[in-house]
Write a protein that binds this DNA or RNA. Structure first.
Length: 531
RNA sequence: GGGGCGUUGGUCUAUCGGUUAGGACGUCGGCCUUUCAAGCCGAAGACGACGGGUUCGAUUCCCGUACGCCCUACCA
């Protein structure tokens, strides 16, 4: 049951000189956060194109997607490129591509368009200017001409005096509205600041944190429009969320203290605010906000490392949220089915890469070869094991190699190192393996290799099967009066240069008679040198 | 300095006042096995940050303290 007790907006705002707005009783909303969302919700992810696509964007985007899907609504992607200093031209495309890779594709975006575009804020600047002007005209905002120097000085004084650092409304008190308008007309550089009420409080019922309230007096007169004519996040976000009919703003915890500003803007405009859900912030191992310094924040890294999008999403879903049945491995569809904000935790989780790696391994093992191999091939090509356009034969061989080591990895990029030796009969031996079985070689090893060579030579090509190879190997062991392992282990070293690896007989069958013989002889050579 | 948010094993978490505080990752040990993995079994690891309340009973509700984090930009 949802109830909303919202005072008539005109009674919320009253005026008085220099403290012009008074917000009376705080905004109280009571909702039920335990339920699934049944009326179509419009959610949005609003990344800033300032660098590589960020894992935090994927985290928030995942839940935006889930809420939209669950409720039968839409998931919108909007590019917030109002910071011209940090803007990176290639970033927006990279973000879109990363979302596509993850499979959480927006219903409306700069790429696919939609009914409430444009979806790039730099293409909407006229809009923000108009709304800012309206706020000024209505007395909810004012022009400010203070230089950065004066602001810095003011802050220094305030800090020294142990006062809270806030704009002192110098321009508001020193000039009349007409004077300010004249100065703007005369081209004096200026910004637009919102006139934050100095009394009352502003609060909301957060979908994950319940009621949060701030004293208005503690909130600064935020700059809404910068001197370069671009809006700040605060203005652009409110205007766009309203114009784009966003019903649920899902964002990171770091925005909590900005929310009252946004709420007051909605009141000033006379708009109904959306619901807010402030999700916990992903953390570094030292509990600070996740950053490049400690971990991997770029989605490119996860992709390059060979994480599967499904695994990443599953892992992300379990950061802060938990499945009602305590299930750990579940697909996106199930998250859509089971999601409620109530099951969200408020603590910022540390991003545990080890657990992600485990989970990724589970997902890899659950794939059939037909699905797995195409995902692995690019890694084989990158490692130089395959040429860029493999022939069907090369591809078949590579797939057979991967099949041998299929369940061994946690990330796809581990495959090349595991199967490398299969592609190269002149592989490099590992010192440890050589020392254990070849140099010095236990007395039975060289005879065993020679006996094996003879037996394998006698095997028709068609019989070069794991079963036949195992029989031959065991027969050799018996002949020499040693345990099977005493032949199997050195043979493995002869085949791969290592003490560990895939099933020996399957590996030999895959290599074929000639290659196996070559490798056996090569090992014999190495063992010979020692004497 | 001010404000806000948070605090269950190393990590992710369950618990919506009554449990021997459960699960997962990781760690350690065992089994399986031609090695490595995988799989299976088992173990160690939480006085539920601390101190007060409320209650017949608190990890769960309230207050305080400590600690951590976020915000405090003409960045988002």
């Amino acid at each position: 049951m949802r109830t909303a007790r919202l005072n008539d907006k005109s009674s919320l705002l009253t005026r008085s000189p220099c403290h012009p707005l008074v917000l009376s009783p705080c905004l109280r909303l009571c909702y039920n956060n335990s339920a699934m969302i049944t009326t179509p919700a419009r959610t949005r992810i609003a990344p800033s194109p300032t660098g590589d696509p960020h894992v935090g964007t994927a985290y928030i985007g995942l839940f935006d997607y889930v809420v939209a899907r669950q409720s039968g609504g839409q998931f919108v992607l909007r590019i917030e490129d109002t910071d011209r200093e940090r803007y990176s031209a290639s970033s927006a495309d990279a973000i879109l591509a990363a979302m596509r890779w993850l499979g959480i594709t927006p219903d409306e975006s700069p790429e696919v368009g939609g009914p409430v575009g444009p979806y790039i804020q730099s293409e909407r600047t006229a809009l923000y200017r108009d709304y800012a002007a309206q706020l000024v005209a209505d007395g909810h905002a004012y022009y400010c001409f203070c230089t950065k120097e004066r602001l810095a000085e003011m802050r220094a004084h305030q800090e020294e005096a142990k006062e809270s650092v806030m704009y002192d409304r110098h321009c508001l008190c020193a000039h009349t509205a007409e004077e300010r308008a004249d100065m703007v007309r005369d081209g004096v550089p200026h910004v637009v600041r919102m006139m934050m009420p100095r009394e009352g409080s502003t609060g909301w019922d957060d979908l994950v944190r319940d009621e949060v309230v701030f004293e208005n007096a503690l909130i600064d007169d935020q700059v809404l429009l910068k001197a370069d004519g671009f809006p700040t996040y605060h203005l652009a976000n409110v205007v766009d969320d309203h114009l784009m009919h966003i019903t649920h703003v899902i964002r990171a915890e770091e925005w909590i203290s900005s929310t009252p500003k946004h709420l007051v803007l909605y009141q000033m405009f006379g708009w109904t605010p959306p619901r807010y859900a402030h999700l916990p912030l992903l953390r570094n191992p030292d509990r600070s906000k996740i950053s490049k310094r400690f971990g991997h924040t770029s989605l490119h890294w996860y992709q390059a490392e060979g994480f599967l999008p499904q695994a990443l999403l599953n892992f992300l879903a379990l950061l802060g949220w938990s499945h009602p049945d305590e299930t750990e491995i579940f697909p996106l569809e199930e998250l859509v089915e089971k999601f409620t904000f109530q099951r969200f935790n408020k603590t910022g989780p540390i991003f545990d890469l080890e657990k992600l790696r485990w989970m990724n391994g589970v997902y890899i093992r659950n794939l059939d070869m037909a699905t797995l191999y195409p995902l692995v091939e690019p890694f084989l090509i990158a490692a130089g094991l395959l040429q860029a356009e493999p022939t069907p034969e090369e591809r078949a061989f590579a797939q057979a190699c991967i099949a041998l080591e299929r369940e061994k990895v946690r990330t796809l990029n581990e495959y090349p190192a595991l199967v490398e030796f299969l592609f190269d009969p002149n592989f490099t031996f590992e010192d440890e393996a050589v020392q254990k079985w070849l140099r010095p070689a236990p007395a039975h090893v060289k005879p065993a290799f020679r006996a094996l060579l003879v037996r394998l030579d006698a095997l028709p090509d068609a019989d070069f099967t794991p079963e036949a190879l195992e029989a031959a190997t065991r027969a050799v062991a018996e002949e020499l009066g040693v345990g099977a392992g005493k032949v199997i282990h050195p043979t493995r070293v002869a085949m791969s240069g290592r003490t560990k690896g895939p099933s020996l007989f399957h590996l030999m069958a895959l290599l074929g008679k000639a290659d196996v013989a070559y490798r056996l002889n090569r090992a014999l050579e190495i063992a010979k040198e020692d004497a």
